[in-house]
Write a protein that binds this DNA or RNA. Structure first.
Lengths: 392, 392
DNA sequence: TACTTTTACTCGGAGCACGAGTATATTTCC
DNA sequence: GGAAATATACTCGTGCTCCGAGTAAAAGTA
């Protein structure tokens, strides 16, 4: 990719990213935001229309003056394919520049290992790509487990072996991105969710264990291979407890359904997420015994204290909670707040970063994956490739 | 700053950053690296010479063919002023595009608080800026303490009150950047030190407490206000120990001179860094009693275990150790390695990120500060401002 | 001195941003 | 219903950068 081509498409990239970030933005507003001169705007938008990257529709809002248009996705514009590998089953979706998602296929794992069902998923991806020829610019897999590069290392509760997700690639020239659900959920919160626009946001997901991400300007900090964000395997917990990950004292064991079970005197639950939700629902309804209340309190305290340490570490503007975490806080608000405040360094305590519940639920990871896909698609290099075939 | 000006200077920015990153690079090599066409190179370099941003010198290496030139700083090119506020005293230095640093002023704190000596330092900065009129494009303060924005929150061992370093600004249009020594030392290691070129590097500095930074492509992840990297205030330690920061269980207390003193049965030392160095030197020399050896072992273990957790968290390519940390590891290598390996998640254990001692010593923070200053100076916007007055 | 090798410069072409000036589409007012 | 007001979009000449093929230059080598 030549340097001049990248430069040529860099303004186009900015505009398309703005349109993605703020669906329904008008042409005038977008140009003003980019400080784009009037003539340049005309030429740029005409070029993007010609390249099937953008379409305009009348914006009918009152007031005098020549009406402007709303910028939106071109009907034959680029799409991102999202592969959702959640605990419940798999889905393949297609999303456009407006953030509209349509399900293309879905299925369940049954009793199969990844090697068993991945070909099926890959087939669904391929079918979706072929159904919209030339339009799919990226495939993004959202995985409910630990990942490294395109490898799945560990999956939710299921005891799957590690597997390479490379088979999900959508064909030559279509990059495959893989992210875990906590990271992608964090992206969704930082870009269009509870902490939209935060410069640095910390997202914490409690499911089976704890995952999360630090988002800087909406981009996740995921380390060399995308395996970062494993907050649950910081040794913030009891050093006498061995974690299935191989280490000891992992925070994981202090804040999820397994912690609640331990405090209540139950054995390790088969599905810690469902177990945790049940306990929290019971406490929430007010009909739970004191033992349950205390278990939630201890767990919320461990959550709050750990988050405080992570705030010391990352200095975020704000924190978002997802999965069981909002329920844990709601079930023992004082315990959580005490532990949170108490764990902050003095200078943070004067002005603690607000802790908000995530606004995206189960669709957070998929929304984040779509955003990541369009980051790729709307980059200058990818646009230059797209435009090379479609302009004029 | 108009968009066209930024675009115009963006290639210039890339070239200057390359020259900074690889001092002594030849014109040919630089153009090849940037994939810059021959004609564009001629025009670009002529423009940069004219703008006093670059100078060329004959590269005398044998072989046939027309000789190329070495790209270097212009004799009247931009400079960054570095203010070093270390535990020992303060210095003001000027650095150029080649990384050459010259000391412009220095002094000691005496018994003064920041409010007492900062005017003196600010005066020295002003004098340095005036001595090279128009050349200083950024002032960077390297502070041995916690910072937030341009505020100094806490300084090394001295019990100073928080203070605003804004007075160090070098005048209108000259931005002031503030970073702590752990962060800046990490930059130095990631760009020209032990882990040069690493995509994600974790730097750990043990001095009084633990600081550090995650460097992604050489850029530190420092959160919303630059206060990130306070690894020492993660609750990885004994929850019964109260930290001066206000929280409990801070890792700080487990890995620095205070930890060694506690394990040896000594009271909290007045200068934990010097205390730690003495103990480590003694153990290193082999003449220390078993009690000291065991103290170092326990401390090295706490260090290794914590770093393992941080590797789980950040997924770095490599880790660098600075301050007392190399000595702790050297004093109890098996204990450190055991704890490090033992704390890693299984998939990291198969291929643990290498842990290297930092190659920069006391000058690391200053070198990192200079790099940060030139990041600012060689950005497209700053170049456009510089070039607007000096071209033609 | 002539040849080889490597690098730098020349120059016409293409593309984008700028910005002042002009045209256009809508609402509001008379 | 028509004119004025208003907000927006388009036109076009200018300046800038990058491209790339061709040419010139500066060394070593025979």
């Amino acid at each position: 990719m030549s340097r001049s081509a990248r430069l040529r498409w860099s303004t186009a990239s900015e505009l398309l990213r703005l349109v993605y970030a703020e669906p329904g933005i008008t042409r005038t507003a977008a140009c003003e935001r980019l400080a784009l001169a009037s003539g340049a705007a005309t030429e740029l938008i005409e070029r993007l229309r010609g390249a099937r990257l953008l379409a305009e529709h009348r914006a009918d809002r009152g007031g005098p003056g020549r009406p402007t248009t709303v910028l939106g996705p071109h009907p034959r514009g680029p799409l991102a394919a999202v592969v959702d590998l959640s605990a419940a089953g798999w889905r393949v979706l297609l999303g456009d520049l407006a953030g509209a998602l349509t399900e293309a296929a879905a299925g369940s794992y049954g009793d199969r290992e990844p090697a068993g069902f991945l070909p099926e998923v890959a087939g669904a991806v391929g079918a979706a790509v072929r159904r919209e020829p030339g339009r799919v610019g990226a495939v993004v897999a959202a995985v409910a487990g630990a990942v490294s590069g395109t490898r799945l290392l560990q999956f939710s509760t299921r005891g799957w072996h590690a597997a390479d997700l490379g088979v999900l690639a959508g064909g030559p020239g279509v990059p495959l991105l893989v992210g875990n659900d906590a990271t992608l959920g964090g992206i969704a919160e930082a870009r269009g969710g509870a902490v939209r626009g935060a410069r640095a946001a910390l997202h914490i997901l409690v499911a089976v264990g704890v995952g999360g991400a630090l988002l800087v300007d909406g981009r996740p900090v995921t380390g060399a291979r995308g395996a970062g964000g494993e907050y649950g395997h910081l040794p913030l917990g009891d050093p006498d407890l061995a974690c299935p990950c191989g280490a000891r004292g992992c925070w994981d064991l202090m804040v999820d359904g397994r912690a609640l079970a331990r405090h209540r005197g139950d054995p390790v639950p088969r599905d810690p997420f469902a177990y945790g939700r049940n306990v929290l629902d019971a406490v929430r309804s007010g009909k739970a015994p004191d033992r349950d209340r205390r278990a939630v309190e201890r767990t919320a305290r461990a959550l709050g204290a750990g988050i405080a340490g992570l705030v010391n570490l990352h200095d975020p503007d704000a924190v978002t909670l997802a999965g069981l975490a909002p329920g844990l806080r709601a079930g023992a608000p004082e315990a959580f707040a005490d532990a949170y405040r108490g764990g902050l360094m003095a200078f943070h305590r004067a002005d603690p970063p607000p802790v908000a519940d995530a606004v995206h639920g189960a669709d957070g990871p998929v929304r984040g994956a779509l955003a990541l896909g369009f980051d790729e698609i709307t980059g200058p290099a990818a646009l230059a490739r797209w435009g090379a075939h479609r302009t004029r």
